[in-house]
Amino acid sequence: MKIPAILREKINLEPLNELYYEFKTFWLVHPERVKRIVSISGPGGPENSQQVKGKVAFVRASALKGATLADLAAVCGEVISRAKASGAGLVVFSPEAGDLLLQLAPYKSPRVFRQVQEAFHSFWSSLAAKYHLWLIPGYRELHAKRRHKRVAFIYDPEGQGDYQTQVQYTKEELAQGFEPARSIKVWQTGAGPISLSFPGEEQFFEIGRVMAAKGAKIVVSLAAWNRPFEVSDVSGGWARAQENNFYWLTSSLTLSPVGASIDGSGVLAHPIREGEDLVLVQVNLDRLAEMANEDSRGQVKMRKEFLKRYLPTLY
């Protein structure tokens, strides 16, 4: 039907357009379609690669571009395949991976974006299952009316998903309606027992204590790609590593107990070369175990029965 020019100027066609693309996107990112496309796109996983304990791969998600779902599945598959061939037991994508699929949105509107994000789980879970590898695709901000939260998802080699919601927000974020989680999780991944930390959470020793008590040996920080070493890392991840005998990892920084580092500083900065999109980090989990078994005469044992008189009640 042809709309007369005089009416075209007066009628707002935006909602119609949005509705049209919403329907179109619904079929484009239907979970079954996504699973099918992921299964046939990109390289197959290396057959005989051995996962190495303590080996984590970090991927720059902003380097992953594709015009179609198949393209995107292929570029993601290629980098996951490389990580797996190198022995990584876990692949961590930089935070922007949470919005990776939005580049496929045929129309820029909140409803279409929401529709595209519906494909998030089927896309990443299919990749994890296809390459039989643990995946963490950055994190996402989820909004519902005035309630918001930041959530990181993790997929196991069977494609099963779980999540960690941020537990500590700033005062301003809480005022905006961000809702913290009440629980901190630890997963037994191919790289070892890991926990996830959102930016800012590393400044709270309490979070590190819960992670360590639950058995975490590697804390993966969901920090920006190639972030330089800063003072806040000393009061954050570095201090948590000293207090809890675990590793704190970002794409460009390995923070460890000083006894587990070669130069005794507890800091291994590995700045990333321009254009590099995959970084492999290897930590020595056996060294942590050795340190725990070393001469303990100089170590201070926490008096839990004494501390518990104060800490739950004083906050």
Partner: peptide
């Protein structure tokens, strides 16, 4: 801390 229950369990 919102995770107070878990924290008290640490001790």
């Amino acid at each position: 801390p919102p995770y107070l229950t878990e924290l008290s369990q640490v001790y």
